[in-house]
Amino acid sequence: MSDAILVSIIMTLVASSTPILLAALGELVVEKSGVLNLGVEGMMLCGAVAGFAVAFSTGSIALGLVASVLAGIATAMVFAVLTLSLTANQVATGLALTIFGIGTSSLIGAGFVGKTIERLGPVFPAALSEHPWLRALFGHDIVVYLSLALVLGVSWFLSRTRPGLILRAVGENDASAHAIGYPVIAIRYAAVAFGGALAGLGGAYFSLALTPMWADRLTAGRGWIALALVVFSAWKPGRLLLGAYLFGAVMTFELQAKAAGISWIAPEVLAMAPYLATIAVLTMMSLGRKTGRLDAPACLGKPFSAP
């Protein structure tokens, strides 16, 4: 295998991992605050369509990225108002949010189906990426570097800063956090908004970088993988990075196998690979633990209303 092919595999792997990594990182913060938002897929789709629509209309990818973040936050706020202010059931609301996101993105995207834009390009000058191996380091777009910086940032925020400590406390024991005097609901609003922002950005990565055209249900269930990844990572950002790239590798394998014309595995089975890997990994995680606790935040998914 030549260097060029290997580097191109790495490029594909990183690119296909990035949207999952972003969405999962946002959801990790949300869950650390004790909220279970199953609407990641819906928020990704809203971000994807908003990003594409703005980029197509204005011709600016940067504006598209900003729009996707705002759209993700807006969608997340629908969830936040319902579950945090009105204490609706988080699981049911999250599922509804996904359906809402699919519908909304189809509606807005109807006029854009099949339209293309110029994709998000590498952030560094081409001169830096002439050599294949340098390309693997410097040939990525800005969102890739941003996602890696965010992993570091979130990890540092959660373990080393006081606001991070408070956020974890809210997810661990909301009643105690309230008793000490922390604004539980406000903190959860902030976490859900952050999760929405990253899910929106992750969605836009599909429509602006991976496949720079609009198609219905562009994210193809990656939001669900992001949710599974959070459990896989045991709510640790470092392991989340590992997991996201692992799934990226499985998806790259699927593409490469198709491209290489491997015929002894049915293409349907190949397409199943990321999802089969999800189930396999989650099962292994539960088998590996004796306690069954899996390090989930203790108040995950429980509604809180100040007494």
């Binding site: 400590l165 661990e172 105690s176």
Partner: peptide, 11 residues
């Protein structure tokens, strides 16, 4: 000091 402590078990 509360009757039911406002503590965070996993911390």
């Amino acid at each position: 000091v509360f009757q039911h402590f406002s503590l965070f078990d996993a911390m």
